[in-house]
Structure formats: structure tokens, C-alpha cells
Design a protein around this nucleic acid. Structure first.
Length: 633
RNA sequence: CGCGGGGUGGAGCAGAGGAAGCUCGUUAGGCUCAUAACCUAAAGGUCGAGGGUUCGAAUCCCUCCCCCGCUACCA
């Protein structure tokens, strides 16, 4: 029996599960179900990556221990996977002892081999990214990756001798064209490898970061997250613990990942395996990103579309179908509420659901819900039988090539063919003119095609297809073999259309656009403000207590101000024109009752007033001495 | 040359060396079994520009242009 071992990345639990997580995981689930139908023995691994600085920080911010924080996040992931009907075989956490023990042994092994060595390191450290940079990497003195501030750091650390394996890896990638897919990603990695590879720093001193796995040969240090997390792919199938299991499943057939983590999987990981004398995975497959309104989906942009919302609004299977149909694997795809509604209405409601509906209604009306027998197959029937017998292999062929969107397109076009067949044989006309045998034939043929098509949609929409199989009273095994065969449904079977499978979605009931900021309207010159309106403005004098630049921004300053009765935080966009220290002690003019705004994570409670020139901005101050809090009118 | 994504009929997108395709929309027609659905037909493209390779280029190579994200900027 052929086997296939698929993995998702271990998701980093500093974030809520979002559309991107859902996508990779659904993809793994759909592939697993397809391969299972094709007779493969499958192993599907997912899990969570729980160590590292960002987790420690996130936990601290929430007043939790890191492990408490992780436990809670893990529940969120698991509950989403349950809602999405994800049938994983193993969910591994990097905090589990089975994993920690493998990490320990791997580290010890590499240390003894001399592939891990201690060295002093001077560099610039980006805290949020957990990455070291050399002087020349920096851009304007900031992190080249995220643009944020870096700290100078000198410390001893342990390094993994990656450079020793560079030539091996280049050759391996060249000799194994399917090792990194799609090809653009492979080229990217080869480009990356054309420059000398640095040894990878794989430790952090535990006095700076304690949330990690201690190095077995030096407990003063913990293991760098990536190094630890990648090893899960071999922990789960049984590396060092279950010889038989490991031999059976490893090497993994697919590591499904997002294109943002190609380097770790395409460079670090195979070198780690090589050093451990383990075979590399067969294929590392990088998919694209979901774009929302043309921007990369990310939490910081506040445009994350919650998978839970989409499930409750549109249904699990509809969501699964959409997300698989809409993305050409490897490329980016756009998400919008409008596109998901269109896709569901066109493919599932109008074509597929409606096909089931019209066939079953006719059998109810003309044959009292009993499936008739086909006794007069003619040209159109033969054509449909032939093409539907071929369909499963065409579809599975596309799945093997990771062209899932094309596979689904192929299935829906078979649905359209069937609609066409019904149209041209006009069973309602046959019923009216009492051509019973012909009518029986058409009804049976259409139903049998429907059964076969439904099986092929099962991996994507398991719940709905199970339901349709209840309508059809069809209990055969869900396999590709059964989808290839003609004549599984027995004449005389009681069938019924119990409900509409995919109701049409009314666009009017949904916001078709994610929330967008309202456009500023230019006030007309004749728009006078009434005195009442003016009185609403609470403009006051404030004294600046502290001022500092907001990290990672070009123009934002965070000011603590004294408003006489209270102290407040406001954010001002003046960093291009003023140094922070110029503000301290100054009396400024503030609009105190402006609706608070969240700017880069800081709540700004008020607005500093300034005059805007062509290419300069000047601060408003007050002449003479007046206490903070004084009202301006 | 910061990195990355993209430019294909009105819209959204697929295709990646051999006759420009799909869905939606539009127009005209058909059907009445079906979820205002389904079916037929028509209009609509110099595949961002220029050059090259080739018997043949949307597809491969070179040069260039444009859009966008990475990068929430409270005046």
C-alpha cells in the first residue's frame, strides 16, 4: 500500500489562528482525503511551535506564564481545526516531552560530532524578529527585515556549522527538481545559496531568554526556536523512539508551508537532517499568500478575516471549497466577501446543488422517489458514461500535480455537462409524452453521474457530500475506485431530496467589502460651523511631560501630557520635524475630546494642534504663562 | 536596481512554446424539472512596451514602463 506523509508548519502561537493558518491546514486535509480515497495510507501532522522570545513577551503582556499562554492558544487552534473538520493524525506541541527529548538527543549528537560549536558574537539584535544582523546588514541603523530598532549585543553563543553543507545542498537541490516547489521558490533558494552561507546561531543565553529548551551540553543556553521546531517533523513519526514508525513514514512527502518560511525549510532543515544523517523530505511545497484588498493579510493591518466568522456565515464546506478553488497553489490570491459569495452561488448553488435538486425532484415527481433503471442508453448516455468514468483519474492527476483549483474546475465543468445533458434530453418532455423507458434512462444516468461527481468533491466538502449520499441512499465506500465505476446505484433504491444543499446567498445581506476607512469629505467653503458646534470642541493647553519616538514608525511621537486634571497619552505625527526632547516642558495646544485612535498599538487620547506649511509643520504654543488644562475658546 | 507580488476581452482570474481560455457581467433567444436556477447564441482581447531566440512566443532571453504590498504616520 503506498503511503503519504504530509505536514503543515507548526504554527507559532503568538497569534490567533487566521485565514493563512486555515488555508494551509485545509490544504493538508484535502490532500490527505484525496490520497486516502486513492488507496494511500496517510499520515497528516500539524501542531504548534511554542518557544521563543515573542511567546514569552506575549505571555508576559497577558500576565500568564508562557505555558499557560500556549495552552490557551493551542485550544484555539484545536477548536478551529475541529470546526473545519480537519482530520489530522497527530498534533504535536514543541513543549511536549517526546519532542524535547528528540531535540536534546539531536543537539547532543551534533555537538559531539563537532557540527555545533561555541563562539563569541557581536552583532545587532532585533528583538521582535529574534534575529541577529551584522553591521552591514542594517538599513539606516535599523533591522533590514522589519525596519525596527536594533540593539547592540555581544555574547557567546552556539553555532551550527551550516556552511560545511552548502555545496552538498546546492547539488542536492539541483539533482532533485521536486525538492522545492514551485520552481520560482527553488530558484529563490538557489539564489540565496549563491552567497556564502553563514553558520546559524542556534542558542540564546537563558538569562536573557528562559523560554526554550536548554542545551543538553550547556544549560546556560536555550535552543533557538527554529532549530527546535523543525525537528517536530521527525519527532512525530517516531525518530529515536519508534524505529518502525519512522521507517514507514519518513521521509515526509510534502512539507506544506507559506512562502515566507521557504528559507528555513529549504536551507536550515535539509542541512540539519544531513548533519543528523537523515534523508531529506521529498518535497517542500510553498503556497502563496491570501491578499485582502490587495494587501498582505496580517494582524497588524487589522484586516484579518476570521475563519470562525466565515464558517458561521457561509458554512464550513462552502468555505473549504472557496479557499481551495480560488487559489492557484503557489501563487497569491485575493480574498473578498464578494468573491466568496460569487463562488458559492455560481459553482455550488447554481450548478452543483441545483443539479442535485432538479434530478431528485424529477425522480420524486415522475417516479415516486424510486430510482428507475436505464434500459435505453443512447449516444448521449454513452458519452456521459465514458467521460464520467475518466473523470476520477483526471481529477486525481491534477491533485498529484498540486493543481487543486484546476481539479475543482474540472469537476464543476462535469456538473455543467450533466446540466446540459438534462437540458438536451428534456425529461419533462419525455414525461409529458409518456416515453417511460427513455425517461427512466435519463433519470438514472444523471443520478449516477451525480454520485460519481459527489465522491470527487468529498475531500473538499465532507459534510455536504455525506448529506447528499443520504439523499441518494448511497452507502458504497468513498474511494476513487468506486468513483471510476459505472452502475453502483441500484435501480429501485429509494432516494429523496430532503433539503437544499447549498442555498443561494443574498449579497445584500452581507457587507461585500471589509471595513474601509470612510473617505474624507472636503468641506465646502460655505459650510459654516454653528457656535453650538464650536462649543463641542474641547481645546486646551497641556504641558508635555515626556516625549519619545514610536519605534518602527517614520513620523510618530508618543507624548505624555499633563492636562491639568489628568495625564494622558497622545500620538503626534511630527517626528520628521521635531526631535522628541524639543517637546519636553513645552505648553502645547490639544484637542482633548477627539475620538481616541489606535496608532501603532498606542491609544492616542487627543490631538496635538500644529500648523501645516508646504513642507513643514510648526507646533502651536501659547504666549505667556497659563496653567495646563486651561480651556481655549 | 531594498525585498516581494502583479500587468491576458467591461470585472475577476486561469493558462506558461504549437489554433487566445474560464467564471461573472452585457445583448438576443430557449426551457419550465430545478435554488429568479438551467441551456443556446452573439458582442468584446495588438496577452503592459520594445527588442531577441524559434518553423512557431501570452509562454523562453534581454531592456524598459506602470500598479501594489512589505511600511496603520492624527494633520
Amino acid at each position: 500500500m503506498p503511503k503519504i506523509y504530509l505536514t503543515t508548519p507548526l504554527y507559532y502561537v503568538n497569534d490567533q489562528p487566521h485565514l493563512g493558518h486555515a488555508y494551509t491546514t485545509i490544504l493538508a486535509d484535502v490532500l490527505t482525503r484525496f490520497y486516502k480515497m486513492a488507496g494511500y495510507e496517510t499520515f497528516f501532522l500539524t501542531g504548534t511551535d511554542e518557544h521563543g522570545q515573542k511567546i514569552a513577551d506575549a505571555a508576559k503582556q497577558r500576565n500568564k506564564t508562557p505555558l499557560q499562554h500556549c495552552d490557551e492558544m493551542v485550544l484555539k487552534f484545536k477548536s478551529l481545526w475541529e470546526k473545519l473538520n480537519i482530520g489530522y493524525d497527530d498534533f504535536i506541541r514543541t513543549t511536549e516531552s517526546r519532542h524535547i527529548s528528540v531535540v536534546n538527543q539531536a543537539l547532543q549528537n551534533l555537538y559531539e560530532k563537532g557540527d555545533i560549536y561555541k563562539s563569541s558574537y557581536t552583532g545587532w539584535y532585533c528583538v521582535p524578529d529574534e534575529r541577529f544582523w551584522t553591521e552591514k546588514d542594517l538599513v539606516d541603523g535599523n533591522c533590514p527585515d522589519c525596519g525596527r530598532k536594533v540593539e547592540k549585543l555581544e555574547e557567546d553563543n552556539y553555532f551550527f556549522r551550516m556552511s560545511a553543507y552548502q555545496d552538498w545542498l546546492i547539488q542536492y537541490i539541483r539533482e532533485h527538481p521536486r525538492f522545492i516547489e514551485p520552481e520560482t521558490r527553488k530558484n529563490e533558494i538557489l539564489g540565496f545559496l549563491s552567497k556564502p552561507l553563514n553558520d546559524l546561531c542556534i542558542s540564546r543565553p537563558s538569562n536573557r531568554l528562559s523560554w526554550g529548551i536548554p542545551l543538553p551540553f550547556d544549560p546556560q543556553y536555550v535552543c533557538y526556536v527554529w532549530f527546535d521546531a523543525l525537528l517536530n517533523y521527525i519527532t512525530s513519526p517516531g525518530y529515536l523512539t519508534d524505529q518502525e514508525g519512522f521507517q514507514k513514514w519518513w521521509p515526509a512527502d510534502y512539507h506544506l508551508i507559506g512562502k515566507d518560511i521557504v528559507t528555513t525549510h529549504g536551507v536550515f532543515w535539509p542541512i540539519m537532517l544531513k548533519a543528523l544523517e537523515i534523508e531529506p523530505p521529498h518535497t517542500i511545497f510553498a503556497h502563496g499568500w491570501w491578499l485582502i484588498e490587495e494587501t498582505k493579510m496580517s494582524k497588524s493591518l487589522g484586516n484579518v478575516v476570521s475563519p470562525e466568522y466565515l464558517i458561521s456565515e457561509f458554512g464550513v464546506d462552502q468555505f473549504r471549497y472557496f479557499i481551495m478553488r480560488e487559489m492557484a497553489l503557489g501563487q497569491d490570491a485575493s480574498f473578498s466577501i464578494e468573491s466568496i459569495i460569487d463562488r458559492i452561488n455560481m459553482d455550488l448553488a447554481n450548478d452543483f446543488g441545483n443539479l442535485a435538486s432538479r434530478i431528485l425532484t424529477m425522480i420524486r415527481r415522475y417516479r415516486q422517489n424510486k430510482l428507475p433503471e436505464a434500459l435505453e442508453n443512447g449516444g448521449p448516455e454513452e458519452a456521459l458514461i465514458t467521460s464520467s468514468n475518466r473523470l476520477p483519474d483526471e481529477v486525481f492527476g491534477l491533485i498529484r500535480e498540486m493543481k487543486i483549483h484546476l481539479a475543482l474546475d474540472r469537476i464543476i465543468s462535469a456538473v455543467r455537462d450533466t446540466n446540459r445533458y438534462i437540458e438536451s434530453s428534456a425529461p419533462w418532455e419525455l414525461a409529458r409524452t409518456k416515453q417511460d423507458k427513455k425517461l427512466d434512462t435519463v433519470l438514472y444516468t444523471a443520478t449516477e453521474v451525480l454520485r460519481k461527481i459527489a465522491l470527487l468533491l468529498y475531500p473538499v466538502m465532507p459534510e455536504k457530500i455525506e448529506r447528499l449520499r443520504e439523499f441518494l441512499n448511497s452507502r458504497e465506500e468513498i474511494t476513487l475506485t468506486s468513483a471510476r465505476k459505472w452502475g453502483i446505484l441500484q435501480p429501485g433504491t429509494a432516494v429523496d431530496h430532503k433539503e437544499i444543499l447549498f442555498p443561494r446567498i443574498e449579497k445584500a445581506l452581507h457587507k461585500t467589502e471589509p471595513e474601509t476607512p470612510k473617505k474624507m469629505e472636503t468641506p465646502k467653503k460655505t459650510d459654516y460651523l454653528t457656535f453650538e458646534e464650536f462649543k463641542k470642541l474641547d481645546i486646551r493647553i497641556a504641558e508635555v511631560l515626556t516625549a519619545e519616538k514610536v519605534p518602527d514608525t517614520k513620523n510618530l511621537l508618543r507624548l505624555e501630557i499633563d492636562l491639568g486634571t489628568e495625564k494622558r497619552t497622545i500620538v503626534a505625527g511630527l517626528a520628521k520635524y521635531y526631535q522628541p526632547q524639543e517637546f519636553v516642558g513645552k505648553k502645547i495646544v490639544v484637542l482633548a475630546n477627539l475620538q481616541p485612535a489606535n496608532l501603532h498599538g498606542i491609544i492616542s487620547e487627543g490631538m496635538l494642534l500644529a500648523a501645516e506649511g508646504e513642507d513643514t509643520v510648526k507646533l502651536l504654543t501659547i504666549e505667556g504663562d497659563i496653567p495646563p488644562g486651561s480651556r481655549i475658546r
